Computed example of a mutant assay.
Amino acid sequence: MDAPIIEIFSSIQGEGLLIGERQIFVRLAGCNLNCTYCDTKNSQSANVGTMMSVNQVLEKIEELSTPDLGSISYTGGEPMLHADFISELIKKTETKSLLETNGTLPKELTKLEDLDWASMDIKLPEHFDNTWSDKILENEISFIKLLIEQDTKLYCKLVVLPSTKISTVEKVLKHISSEISGHMEIPLIIQPASPLELWEGNTDKLFQFSEVAGKYMKVYTIPQIHKFLNIE
C-alpha cells in the first residue's frame, strides 16, 4: 500500500492542545477542500509528493525518532483521503498518534480504530471562495460524534481573521453544540490567523470570540507558536 507523501519531519507542535510537544509530522498530499487561509498550498494536489509504502514511512519515522518524541502527527492536505494507509501506520507503531483533519470525511474515520488524538478544524463560510455548503458543517458534526463514540481524545480548532463576524462564529458553534448536547467539555482552540501583525488594533475582537465560544465549548485562544520560533 502506497500513498503520496509531501514530507516527513521532526519538529515542535505549534498548534492546539499538544502545543510544545515534540512530534514527527507525516504530511500527505491531496485535499478535498480549498480554504483561503491554507498555509500548505503545496499539499493540496494529490499529484504532488513522493509515493511511499507503509514500511518506507515507518523507516523514516524510526530514523527521526528522538527521546523526547511524544506523538506522530498525520496531516496534509487532508490525511483522511488516505485513511487505510494511516490505519496501517498506526497499527505498526507504538508511538501515540494525532490526526489533523478538516473533519469532512466521517466515513473514513471508522478505519482509524486505534487513533489517540484528533485535531479537527471547524470551517466557516468565509474560509472559502463561494464553495462552502451546509454539508461541510454536517460532516464535521458527524465526525465529532464518531470521535466521541470511539473515545478518541478530541479538540476542535477555529481559525479566525479580524474580518471574521462574531455572529457567524456564534451561529456555527451554537449549531454544533445543539447536535452534540452534553459534550461542552470538548476543547475549542481559537487560532488567530497569521501573521499576528494582522491583529494590531484588533486584539479586543479575540476576547469577543472567546466569550461567544465559551457559551458552547471549553475555549482556548492559541496562536501558531511555531511561527514565533521560525520553525516548520
Rank of each mutant, 00 (worst) to 15 (best):
A118V: 15
K135M: 08
A3W: 07
L28H: 09
I222V: 05
A213L: 06
H183A: 00
E232L: 15
S97R: 08
G49W: 09
V169F: 10
P187G: 03
T36N: 14
K157L: 06
M51N: 04
I166E: 07
L17C: 07
V57Q: 03
P192V: 04
K111N: 14
T75D: 14
P4I: 01
L147W: 03
G20V: 09
L154I: 10
E7V: 00
T95Y: 10
I189S: 02
I144K: 10
P223D: 05
K96R: 03
K145Q: 11
G76N: 09
S87Q: 10
K111A: 13
E126T: 12
E100G: 12
C35Y: 03
S210V: 01
D39L: 04
I90W: 09
K171M: 14
S210F: 11
S87T: 07
E185M: 00
S119M: 14
K227T: 13
S194G: 07
K145V: 00
L124C: 05
K171D: 15
N42Y: 14
I122N: 03
M80R: 13
I166H: 07
L17T: 06
S194Q: 15
L89T: 03
W199N: 14
P223W: 02
T75Y: 13
E149V: 12
F85C: 01
K96N: 02
W132G: 03
L154W: 02
I166A: 03
D68T: 10
G103A: 13
S11Q: 10
R27T: 08
K215D: 02
V159G: 04
L124K: 00
V212C: 01
T36K: 15
S177M: 00
Q56E: 15
G70W: 00
Q13P: 06
L99Q: 05
S210H: 14
V172A: 06
D151C: 11
L109M: 11
F9Q: 05
D204R: 12
D84A: 11
T104M: 12
S65N: 05
L161R: 14
S178A: 07
K174T: 08
N102E: 09
M217C: 08
M51L: 13
F207T: 09
E170W: 02
I136V: 14
T203M: 13
E200M: 05
K174C: 10
L89S: 02
K41M: 01
E126V: 04
M80F: 14
E200T: 10
I122Y: 02
M120W: 10
L161D: 14
M184R: 11
D84F: 10
S142K: 11
F207C: 07
M52K: 15
M1R: 03
G14I: 10
E100A: 11
L58V: 01
